[in-house]
Write a protein that binds this DNA or RNA. Sequence first.
DNA 1: CTTCTGACA
DNA 2: TGTCAGTA
Length: 135
Amino acid sequence: MSEDSVRRSMPLFPMGIVQSLTDLSARQIRYYEQHKLVEPARSEGNRRLFSFNDVDRLLEIKSLIEKGVNMAGIKEMLKVEEKPANDAYDEKRVEEVHNELSEKELRRMLQQELFTAGSHGKLGIRQGELSRFFH
DNA sequence: CTTCTGACA
DNA sequence: TGTCAGTA
């Protein structure tokens, strides 16, 4: 664990700061938290305390949102870390075996396309057309 | 004054 | 998503 690692995950700024830092509304930030895209710490008074990692995460989320990606898509992209051990993987295996290779490859290509184009200009993809690739 | 949760003319 | 309410 590098010292930078701890500083990056240290609970520092409240909602207001994060709002101006990300240009996201408090409503949106709380909404993304509900979907476990970020998990800020809490102060004694139940106030949210975001870390640099949280802010970075929110900025990426914002980037994806601006490209028209929805919650399902964002969760796929950021790979929300989840359950330690259960049977959720069985379903994924079933799906993989059930799906054609073309669909899986297509999804991968879309991820790359979105990420690369992500740090650049805008892409002509919209929710309706894109949502089809995420379930 | 700022943030939080819950709810919806 | 915005926004208003009633708190902490």
